[in-house]
Computed example of a mutant assay.
Amino acid sequence: MSLDSLFSSLSSNLKGSGKSDPKSLLGGLLGSAGAQGALGGAASGALVSVLMNGKARKKIQKNAVKVGGMAALAGVGYYAYQKWQQSRQDAPAATPVQVLPPASQDATPPPLPADLASASVQVKVTGELPMKMVLAMIAAAAADGTIDSVEMSALAEAIDNAPVEAAEKARLTSALNSPPTVEELSGLANGPEEASEIYGAALTAIEVDTPSEHLFLRRLSRALDLDEQLVATVHETLEKA
């Protein structure tokens, strides 16, 4: 099955499931200009389109068309992280703030992007980050059992057709069959910025309207050692996108 045929199939199979037409995002996701390495091209299009909930997809669709699906996805967490960093810089001296690891303390935060679109252009989506975000989305979707048999088949087909190495295909297939735990996801993050991007990706995969989804996000934020205000900023960023 071609990727175009796959998306046509998804369009009909996912009607009424609460997820909007995956093909509507093809222009940005299949290009994925902001991503390099694993899941940098067609793989991100198929996987992210199935995993992202309809509300989130609509909110970041314009950015995805411009900069690529993975850059738009990472932009949510990246923008939130930059806003949080800026708020810490602007906080009065007497206000207690979270102390970042030494490596982060020495780095001067870049200027705050004007908006989410600008953040999506600035964010660097390289190396393993695309894989990490997709793994987080799979774990989040599985938290409430929202990966049904139709979506599972579509994801398996997308992985099979994806132009990635056999090891990456095996890793994704394994994740579908046995979704990563929050502890496993926390071990993937290289610093608070990447942790924010991974958390933001997970957030786009669920509606956050069930106790199990709320619990998953609470556990994930703690496992990633994210500041509570930073978590709130990630949610606010996606809500106002």
Rank of each mutant, 00 (worst) to 15 (best):
L3E: 09
R219I: 00
E239S: 04
K15Y: 02
L188G: 03
E168F: 01
M133C: 07
A46L: 11
V67N: 06
A202E: 03
K58V: 02
A43I: 10
V76E: 04
E151I: 00
A94W: 04
S118P: 00
E151M: 08
P22V: 11
S20D: 11
G40K: 04
V208I: 14
P130V: 11
M52E: 15
P96E: 09
L116D: 02
R219E: 10
Q122T: 11
L6E: 09
A241V: 06
L100W: 05
V123D: 03
M52P: 01
T233C: 02
L30Y: 14
R219Q: 14
I60T: 05
E151R: 09
A74G: 13
P179K: 10
A139Y: 06
L203Y: 14
S196Y: 08
W84L: 00
V208W: 04
Q36P: 01
S174Q: 14
P180I: 08
P211G: 09
G200Y: 13
P101R: 00
L217T: 06
A140Y: 09
D160T: 14
R222L: 09
E128Q: 08
S153I: 00
A33W: 08
N63T: 13
K124L: 13
A223I: 00
L73C: 03
L29T: 15
N13L: 05
P113I: 04
V76A: 04
L14W: 12
L238N: 13
V208L: 13
L217R: 02
A119S: 15
G34Y: 07
R171V: 08
K19N: 12
A42H: 06
V99T: 13
L100S: 07
A166W: 03
P111R: 14
A94F: 01
Y79T: 13
S212Q: 15
L224F: 03
L176M: 08
A202S: 13
A33N: 09
G40Y: 02
S221Q: 04
P92L: 08
S196Q: 01
R88C: 15
